[in-house]
Amino acid sequence: MNEAVELLDGAGALLICAGAGMGVDSGLPDFRGGEGFWRAYPPYARLGLRFEELADPRHFAEDPELAWGFYGHRLSLYRRTVPHDGFRLLLSLGARLPGGVRVFTSNVDGQFQKAGFEFVAEAHGSIHHLQCLGGCTDDIWPADMDVVVDEETMRAVPPLPSCPRCGGLARPNILMFGDVSWVPDRSQAQLDELTAWRRTARDLVVVELGAGQAVPTVRRYSELASAATGALIRINPREPQIRHGRGVSIAAGALETLKQLLPR
């Protein structure tokens, strides 16, 4: 903890890299493993469907009510969720640094934007934006509709979200498993901005929170961003280890650690 405090005291800019564990302290479900997912969504346990199976774009074509039941429920959940106080602590720290703060996340929940962060690179897209399932256009538009979900069956009730151009089914602008149709333009623009900022950021410190090894997108990015200096703080209660010891690892949850690291 002392090493982490020293790194933050010397920071000129802050890069936050966040995985799904960042949202647990806000009350969002932990999808780690089948049992964790099924505790959050008992109807899927009865059907024997795992997260990896539901997060597959083929369901939008084969069974759109099932697909939109899952994503519509999550959209509603994320809209209702209030970001925990750790978001505010990080935002306050970034505001005091000359180089400011940026976020890189695999999360699709929009919690950083809700907490007030202006520059967020969403590597896997956002549930708050949609694209055409049929590919009539590469346009991406806000998900400004409500999806009614029968919580007994976890199936969406028509009408389902549609493309304003062709009238066909819409899907979330999220990179799913085995997804070859995701439109990456919005996320790529965010990543390009982040890359340009990193080139100018001096005394950059990377704080990684809740990023596991199962989908290592965030862990790889945080290690890349801190490779030259080793100024990486990895906060993870289950998988805190850092390759080659290039950084500081803290085996604890996001909120409890941030409260200790950052002044209120």
Rank of each mutant, 00 (worst) to 15 (best):
A252V: 03
V183E: 13
A45P: 12
D30L: 08
L7H: 08
G94M: 04
E152G: 15
L130C: 10
C163F: 06
T257I: 05
P29I: 03
R219S: 04
G116D: 08
R264L: 11
W197C: 00
M154V: 00
P237V: 01
R238F: 13
D109Q: 04
G10L: 00
D144A: 14
G253P: 01
L255G: 01
L232F: 06
P142G: 07
C132H: 09
Q260A: 13
G99S: 09
R171P: 06
E62N: 11
Y221F: 13
G34L: 02
A251E: 13
G247H: 04
A231D: 11
G33P: 11
C163H: 11
V149T: 03
T229R: 13
G10S: 11
K259I: 00
A170V: 03
M176A: 14
G33D: 15
A211N: 07
W141S: 05
P158S: 12
S26D: 09
P237C: 01
D9Y: 00
G19L: 07
A211T: 01
H129G: 00
P57G: 09
E122H: 04
H59F: 08
E65Q: 15
I242G: 13
M154L: 12
L169N: 09
R79M: 00
A95N: 14
A40Y: 02
G94A: 03
G10Y: 01
T217K: 10
R39H: 13
D144H: 09
R220H: 14
V205G: 02
C17F: 07
A67Q: 07
R202A: 15
L75N: 12
G27P: 07
F31C: 06
I140A: 11
R39Y: 01
T257K: 02
W38K: 10
R96L: 10
G27D: 05
L194Y: 01
L91W: 07
D185Q: 14
G116H: 06
S76P: 00
L47A: 15
R171N: 03
E6A: 15
F104L: 07
L209F: 05
R199H: 07
E6Q: 15
W38E: 03
I16T: 06
A225D: 00
A211F: 04
G247F: 02
G253L: 01
V24I: 15
T217V: 14
A61E: 15
G110P: 09
R102K: 11
H84P: 06
T195C: 04
D138Q: 14
Q131A: 08
V207H: 07
G168N: 11
L28S: 09
H59N: 07
D25V: 02
Q241H: 15
R198I: 00
R198Q: 14
G110W: 03
L66C: 05
G134Q: 14
A13F: 00
R234F: 02
